[in-house]
Design a protein around this nucleic acid. Structure first.
Length: 474
RNA sequence: GGUCCCAUCGUCUAGAGGCCGAGGACACCACCCUCUCAAGGUGGAGACACGGGUUCGAAUCCCGUUGGGACUACCA
């Protein structure tokens, strides 16, 4: 099959995406874009019970923030809509009816209790569990009897009982022996569609050519293919990604705490870094490149180079990468991104000062969330020296801070170079080196023993505010 | 239990029979730079899970073992 490549990402609307899902979205997007194809977003909300509008929005917001745009899907529309499965009920119903009529599916009258009992018995006998296919061969009179009884029924797919081979784009050939894939439910007894029906119908209807998803779904590939083929369609190609796992080597889940895209955003990670990091989780361009922005990733991405082993999410490396991206961002951009975190900390921001402060702090920030600590002294005059700063001040020679105020106050020009030499003169006069001589000033002015480079910081702060703080400390 | 997937430094990976006495990155350690903190530079330590084959030759191919994981739902 030639023609346009069409990839889809089909998340359940579970609120903010966890980074494993985000990586799936990214790889699917990269494959679509790499091939100049379309990226489709479809929301799998057939389990209506716990779907909220907020959870739905969370997914869209995350994708947008990451820079993964979609050509078809919620809010952008497209020729194969609607793109929320909850709005496609009639389509699934129709498909199920057709499969039923054509003998690819059948009504199953087994109750959950009966299934459970038979499953348990099979296990005890040492037989593999799973649906035993009982209703597949029901005689007409038995069927009629069940109907007359008013028994509820599900619609079950009659899985063709031959061996299956899936040519997976990342795993290679994966096979299942004859009879290993059991008949599965398509429509619940309340008439609602199950995932296995919905994906098959939608992937077919939406003209999906490549399905990129987690390898927890590998075993459902032959089932997806079978349904699509029963519907008279041609199944897409599948590429199953290894799992992203947490510190404990288990697939990422709520248990791992804050692993959502939103959580990382709130912790001051930038989308560029998260995307770059995620791209390298389970994939590499084959050379030693690590820092590669989205366009570069798109150009070199190749599903066949995706690794087969689960990848542990390493916040340390993400953090390093985040810092690298902060270092290369231009001042205006970086400043704009800091604003949220500064105001969040209750600091009133002067945009001009903020912008000018960027060169001083960019390589000192691993995340944007560190901006407030680094810049607090510029945006508030409420400086309360912390413990270490107080210790430094206490150890300073008598009158040292006063002397600093005098020396700086006498400066004809308030610029970093002049400030630096004044501070040097002061230190020298007291027989101190720079390290010892500058720290008391830093402590008095910033309230901390850690700050951006001192002369530049004081220049930015301005003479008046600097002197006032020195006076106060003296 | 059955079926399937997976197995290179602590972590992410390069490696598709000889170029590997295994390369890069994060983290770690040391040193350099240095006004604090970072950033940066240089160097160091650190891995082919195990056992059998195949081959002149295996991290790379095959089999087994062990260890992880997924699936085995009227979840997705």
């Amino acid at each position: 099959m030639t023609g346009e490549v069409r990839c889809r990402f089909a998340p359940a609307p579970s609120g903010s995406l966890h980074v494993g899902n985000a990586r799936t979205a990214l790889f699917s997007w990269l494959w679509a874009r790499h091939n100049g194809g379309a990226f489709i977003l479809r929301v799998e909300d057939t389990d209506a019970s716990r779907v909220t509008e907020e959870a739905f929005r969370g997914v869209l917001d995350d994708l947008r923030w990451l820079g993964l745009d979609w050509d078809e899907g919620p809010e952008v529309g497209g020729p194969h809509g609607p793109y929320r499965q909850s709005e496609r009920r009639s389509i699934y119903q129709e498909a199920a009816d057709r499969l039923l009529a054509e003998g690819s599916a059948y009504r199953c009258y087994c109750t959950p209790e009966e299934l459970e009992v038979r499953n348990r018995e099979a296990k005890e006998r040492g037989d593999p569990p799973g649906y035993d296919g009982r209703c597949r061969t029901l005689r007409d009179d038995e069927r009629v009897a069940f109907e007359r009884e008013g028994r509820p029924s599900t619609v079950r797919f009659a899985m063709p009982q031959h061996a299956w081979v899936v040519h997976d784009l990342v795993k290679g050939e994966v096979g299942w022996g004859e009879g290993q894939l059991r008949d599965f439910v398509l429509l619940r007894s309340d008439g609602s569609p199950v995932f296995l029906l919905a994906v098959a119908v939608d992937d077919l209807a939406m003209g999906v050519t490549h399905v990129v998803r987690g390898d927890d779904l590998l075993a459902s590939a032959p089932r997806n293919i079978a349904v699509i083929e029963a519907l008279g369609g041609v199944a897409p190609a599948y590429g199953h990604l290894p799992q992203v796992v947490g510190r404990d080597r288990r697939p990422l889940s709520k248990r791992h705490g804050s692993t959502s895209v939103e959580a990382f955003r709130e912790q001051g990670f930038v989308a560029e870094a998260l995307v770059n990091y995620l791209a390298l989780l389970g994939w590499s361009p084959g050379d030693d490149r690590e820092l590669a922005p989205l366009p570069e990733l798109t150009a070199s991405f190749d599903l066949s180079r995706v690794s087969n082993n689960p990848a542990m999410f390493d916040v340390e490396k993400l953090t390093w990468m985040n810092n690298r991206y902060l270092q290369t961002m231009d001042d205006d951009d970086l400043a704009a991104r800091c604003v949220h975190f500064l105001t969040e900390s209750g600091l009133g921001v002067d945009p001009v000062v903020l912008r000018r402060a960027m060169p001083l702090v960019r390589e000192r920030m691993k995340t944007l969330a560190e901006a407030p600590d680094l810049l607090r002294f510029l945006f508030t005059d409420d400086i309360e020296p912390n413990e270490r700063a107080r210790a430094v001040l206490a150890k300073a020679p008598d009158g040292y801070v006063r002397g600093a105020a005098d020396a700086l106050g006498a400066l004809p020009s308030w610029d970093a170079a002049s400030i630096a030499s004044a501070l040097d003169g002061l230190a020298e006069g007291a027989g101190l080196n720079r390290t010892k001589g500058w720290q008391p000033v830093r402590a008095a002015v910033t309230g901390s023993t850690v700050s951006p480079p001192l002369p530049e910081s004081l220049e930015l702060l301005g003479a008046d505010r600097t002197l006032a703080r020195l006076e106060a400390a003296a």
